[in-house]
């Protein structure tokens, strides 16, 4: 009887241990969903997350001279960031495969140095996968001294694979105040990878 009770106790402890570990793993899985979600959106281009490619790769793609796509530029500033921020051109017409460069302008309206981070989004969502950038001010955080204004370049190429029905692509940036004490590395630890978003 006691031996049986002892065995039962051991069996119970085994179950508790295994299920306890399972519960902790599932707690971790909840957090693992964060980078998984970013990777998934990056691969599929969901959520307007744009791609980043090397310049050589962009230059090597064939230009589709028969087709013109309108690319519109938008810029907004988050209310926390005392900056002026706007695109230098409102829209351009480009051939798919053609590397194009445009500029945005940002100016710090305060008396102190402020760092900002631009977050891009592309509409319609299905175009995001085909919108690639070789250079962008959003790849890193931008720091502006007091009152400093600067033109910031953006070089992009629209992939010729862009679905036929998409005639206009809107690229929007929102500039947020970069969190001071947070370095890019800690952001990527928290967020999976910041690069995958940009």
């Amino acid at each position: 009887m006691t031996m049986e009770a002892d065995q039962r106790r051991q069996a119970n402890q085994r179950v508790v241990k295994r299920l306890g570990i399972a519960a902790m793993l599932m707690f971790g899985f909840g957090f693992a969903l964060v980078p998984l979600y970013d990777v998934f959106c990056d691969i599929t281009g969901l959520n307007g997350k744009t791609g980043r490619i090397e310049l050589e790769q962009a230059l090597s793609s064939t230009v589709d001279k028969d087709r013109l796509v309108t690319v519109e530029f938008l810029g907004t500033v988050h209310s926390d960031l005392p900056w002026e921020f706007k695109p230098m051109v409102r829209r351009v017409k480009v051939h798919p495969g053609e590397v194009t460069e445009v500029n945005y302008y940002a100016r710090n309206l305060t008396d102190g140095q402020v760092a900002g981070q631009a977050i891009p989004s592309v509409a319609p969502g299905q175009a995001a996968k085909y919108f690639n950038k070789t250079e962008c001010f959003c790849f890193t955080r931008q720091t502006l001294a007091a009152g400093e204004g600067k033109e910031m370049p953006l070089r992009f190429v629209v992939d010729p694979g862009l679905p036929e029905e998409v005639r206009t692509v809107s690229l929007s940036y929102t500039f947020f105040q970069a969190k001071d004490e947070v370095t890019t590395e800690t952001i990527s630890m928290e967020k999976g990878s910041l690069d995958s978003i940009l």
Binding site: G30, L33, V34, Y37, N47, H78, D80, Q117, I119, T174, F176, Q177, K179, E181, V182, I187, E190, K191, L194, I197
Partner: peptide, 19 residues
């Protein structure tokens, strides 16, 4: 100061709904 669901820090509110 994290921003899992805050676009300002690179997060995403839709992520909340998924989790």
């Amino acid at each position: 100061g994290t921003s899992f669901f805050d676009a300002a820090g690179g997060g995403d509110p839709v992520l909340f709904q998924h989790v």
